[in-house]
Design a protein around this nucleic acid. Structure first.
Lengths: 208, 208
DNA sequence: AGCCTCCTTGAACGATCGTTCAAAAAGCGC
DNA sequence: GCGCTTTTTGAACGATCGTTCAAGGAGGCT
């Protein structure tokens, strides 16, 4: 039983790497077997089929966003808006680390598996939602630095959009600069929003 | 000879649809044969292999961006900045038309085929570049409405980022609203840029 | 030791993949 | 009608896919 749980996590761990680098469809069960040094029977003893491994992988990403992503990204960063750009900086680091071959594992799987089972699709959506929820918290923490009445949820989704689009273009052109320019544009947007909030505040105080 | 050219375009046309809906890897040659009502030999008489069909598809997208995409999107739109949002509106229409199953064909292929041959990768990058070049022209036409010294190329890439990210999230959540909110955020960004340019201009005229 | 359960072994299955090719058909100048 | 090239036919190939399963080993309980 302990061995089974051990094998399960080994399989999930290997699948996370393989699905990320090759995609779900192009990763064969044989790939997983050779990577984990297991036999087919052992794998199918733990998982009913290949798709169940995908579900386990997506659950692992969903549940591990804090430890695997936000934790490392936010080490030593307190300012809520800087936390957002530190998160994007983490992706920049991943791009560099992989010689511009990095692709967001969730985004890639989302595009590949758009007509998969509802179970899979819901997990993909949940992963996106978890990501934007974390960013949204930062935006809420920023308080009055952003204009009143701003749609913070929409802006959090826009940060995700910037990340996904930047990663996609950087990988396609094999050049981080595409990611950097996207982040720079988002930074400018934040600066403009902060400036607008400051003008609003100033006008308000003049009236009082 | 005429028949061969005819078959070639039939195959390319079928492949554009199939690669778009199923992806490259999940589209089998048998799928293409049944869709085109051809036999294997006829296909392999025209194309050396499956990948060459992909190349032809990407070339067709690259060369047809004007007629297939920009033309329909810009019918009756003159304002350069509105042309950008008309282009995004075209994608919104595509999302609705497909019940939120739409994915940008280039973006999807770019994520799926990131370690393909250089020939394929270059074509993917060329498709992105063609798209951003069209947007960039609009930005140039906008002239003084945008701040001086603005990196127009970067902003054009940012428009592509918004489109790709919005399409990805809308499809994953099966909800156009995700795309709409992304476009709204971009619209806000443009409004802020235009306001900034207006303030700059006003200040300049006051000095003169 | 005996028994039962949990886990692993690894060969084998049928399906499907991209691709090949000898043979037949069609098109064309004469 | 004849000869030559271009195109089509469709069965077949070997490889690989996800999956199955009878057989055997490992470890615990009585």
């Amino acid at each position: 039983m302990i061995a089974a749980r051990d094998n399960r996590s080994r399989i999930v761990h290997a699948a996370m790497e393989l699905f990320w680098s090759k995609g779900y469809g192009s990763t064969s069960v044989a790939d997983l077997l050779s990577r984990t040094q297991l036999n087919a029977g052992s794998l199918y003893h733990v998982f009913p089929g290949k798709q169940d491994i995908l579900v386990a992988v997506l659950e692992a990403y969903r549940d591990g966003i804090g430890e695997m992503l936000l934790g490392p990204a936010w080490e030593g960063v307190a300012d809520p808006i800087e936390k957002i750009f530190a998160l994007l900086g983490r992706y920049r680091w991943l791009i560099l680390e992989t010689d511009c071959a990095y692709g967001c594992p969730i985004g890639s799987l989302a595009l590949e598996l758009h007509h998969a089972d509802p179970a899979v699709r819901d997990l993909l959506a949940a992963n996106f939602s978890g990501w934007t929820a974390a960013v949204r918290e930062c935006l809420d923490d920023a308080g009055a630095r952003l204009p009143a009445g701003l749609d913070r949820q929409a802006l959090a989704e826009f940060v995700l959009t910037t990340m996904e689009g930047g990663v996609m273009q950087a990988r396609t052109h094999r050049d981080v600069a595409y990611f950097d320019r996207g982040v720079a544009a988002l930074r400018r947007h934040f600066d403009l929003l902060e400036a607008q909030a400051a003008r609003e505040k100033e006008r308000e105080e003049r009236h009082a």
